[in-house]
Amino acid sequence: MTPRAPYHHGSRAVQDLVGVRELADHVGRSIGDGIRPVAAAFLELQPMLVIGGADPAGALWASLLTGEPGFVRATGPHQISIAGGLRRADPLAQALAQETQEGNPVGTIALDPRTRRRMRLNGRARPTPRGLAIEADQVFSNCPKYLQKRELPGVAAPGRPAAPRHGVKLTGDQRAFIAEADTFFLATVHAEGADASHRGGNPGFVQVPSPHELTWRDYPGNSMFLSLGNLATDPRAGLLFLDWVTGTTLQLTGTARTEYGDDGTRTVRFTLTEAVETQRASPWSWSPPEYSPANPT
């Protein structure tokens, strides 16, 4: 994996299947391993960061990090630091607290609903006395497609997150929550690293046909097919849903596969292994959304 050749054979296979290899090569030139000044400035304004990786048992999770703006910052041309780290009860906390020679593969995404901007940084994480440090392998931005606009009118709410609730199937309330979601985050992995991405749409774009299964349409994007390419080589996946008003998070781990329709549509089918719900996981309360004009109706 290098800045000029960012795709492994899984992503290449999907690009060829869809017929976008040439476009993917063009877009892939935007992927580097350095953090430019504009990217560093963007990170320091963010009150949250999503991180994806594997727990000690190999299950994949997407987790939420929050703090006052400045808790994530670039500490060099290829490194960011995160103050505070994950909550001790988070499914990824144990893995990211372990010191390894090469670091733990992680994917991160900083998404700013206020400006409909997002930035992804994938690399290797190691614990520090103050939280986490991540050495970047890939740094790039995505277009604002399918990002809902939200404002952050208040200050962080006091109090601590509730104890997480674990389950092996979705409750009725959790299914209803997912069915009304307009945003979630997706963690995937490949042999050389991890990735965290965003999925968005109008409420109902994620369907919950059973307590053990989710499906969603894969909307046209940047043609990189990093997430679907990863799933083509490793079906493990982690999903994160956030209640933007109350701060409750719903983390799901399991496996996912992509179904390709004769009409050119793509549907991802996720099978649940475990769910973790945490009330007040985020101290931030965002405004109601202004839906992206790119969202399919």
Rank of each mutant, 00 (worst) to 15 (best):
V245C: 14
L226F: 15
G254Q: 05
G247I: 08
P235A: 03
P220C: 07
G238N: 02
P220K: 04
D234W: 04
T249D: 07
N222F: 04
A232F: 04
T249G: 03
V245D: 15
T246K: 13
D243M: 09
L242G: 07
T249W: 00
R236D: 10
N230R: 00
A237I: 14
N222M: 09
S223C: 15
A232N: 12
S227E: 05
L231H: 00
N222T: 01
L250R: 05
N222I: 05
L228D: 12
G238W: 01
P220Y: 05
L240W: 09
T249H: 00
G238D: 01
T248V: 08
A232K: 06
S227R: 01
L242H: 09
F241I: 12
N230V: 09
L239I: 12
A237T: 12
A237H: 11
F241Q: 08
T233C: 12
D234C: 10
T248I: 00
T246N: 02
D234R: 08
L231N: 01
T249N: 10
L231F: 01
P235K: 00
T249Q: 08
S227I: 07
P235I: 02
L228N: 13
T233N: 09
A232G: 12
T246D: 03
G229L: 07
L239E: 03
N230A: 10
A237G: 11
L239D: 08
Q251N: 12
D243S: 13
A232R: 13
G221L: 09
G238E: 03
L228H: 13
G254H: 00
G221P: 03
W244Y: 15
L250N: 05
Q251G: 10
A237K: 04
S227F: 02
Q251A: 13
S223L: 07
L250K: 08
P220I: 03
L250P: 01
F225D: 03
L250W: 02
A232W: 01
T253R: 09
R236H: 15
G254F: 08
R236Q: 14
R236G: 13
T249E: 06
P220T: 03
N222A: 10
L228I: 15
L240Y: 11
W244R: 06
N222K: 07
F225M: 10
L242F: 10
T253C: 15
V245T: 15
F241D: 03
F241T: 02
L240F: 08
T246W: 03
W244N: 04
F241P: 07
D243I: 08
T253K: 07
V245G: 12
N230F: 07
L252G: 02
T253M: 11
T248S: 12
S223K: 14
L239R: 00
M224C: 15
